[in-house]
Design a protein around this nucleic acid. Sequence first.
DNA 1: TATAATGTTAGACT
DNA 2: AAGTCTAACATTAT
Length: 285
Amino acid sequence: MPELPEVETLCRQLNAVLPGKTVLAVDVLDSRLTPPDGLTGRQIGAITRHGKFLRIALAAARRGRGGPGRGNQPHAEAGDAGSVLVLHLRMTGRLLWQPPAVPLPRYARLAITFAEGRLVLADPRRFATIGDTLPPSAAVSVSAGRIVDPLAGAPAERLRALAQSRRLPVKAFLMDQRWIAGIGNIYACEILHQAGLDPRRPAGGLRIGEWRKVQRATAAVLARAVECRGTSISDWRDLFGEPGANQHHLEVYSRQGEPCRRCGARIERLVLGGRGTWFCPCCQK
DNA sequence: TATAATGTTAGACT
DNA sequence: AAGTCTAACATTAT
């Protein structure tokens, strides 16, 4: 369900709600989830997004340990085990903010209670994960050319360098989180339609001018999706249970058989890398 | 009932 | 060795 724009939406909403609040209780409702110990009593700090990961910082416990021993380095990004909560919603995970006394939603898997309300992870398929660190693959420094935030720009030269001599389909390349963080199936389809490129093209075969089109399409598609607070095809809801509006802007995703709004040809569906892939055979070459 | 689903990854295969 | 592909994860909705 959540790709970069949806996670970005949650991140902004979480930052408007959680910082400064103190965790009163953590309830695990699904045994496959193992939240880090010692969350209770701690205060929420800033929430950041890393690709599709959410990272919630936790301030030091308020009582006790107040003394001298704490030579505060200004945020050593690497070893933040014990001071953060990391979430990944995978396919069907949802985060909801509920006022006190509202009953838990269906498929609630984790609840973090505060005096003012509670944060609930609901997830029918149970793929969502929580942890105490970002995985190394999401850490900023792995490979120098990695595009850590396509919302901030995916430069054509960098895309071309990353894709150099690769033969996998350009759509699979765009979705590979090791190189570009945050693009998933919906937005990969939409970006390639807007760029006018066939999703099956080997990534290494695109010319620089074609990468420029990808650069522009990525910026436009993701920015609009964030403005629209995500795509509510079926079950995406924001932190407050509200649907997004970007589904009204989809050009190809899930539209097989319907006419392309640019050229009128029928949208086709095929399977690439095990995922449904929609494209216009007329204007994507 | 059969199929597909907004994601990732371990293992198999090239 | 490194790149690529497939199946699997668990469950619901159509």
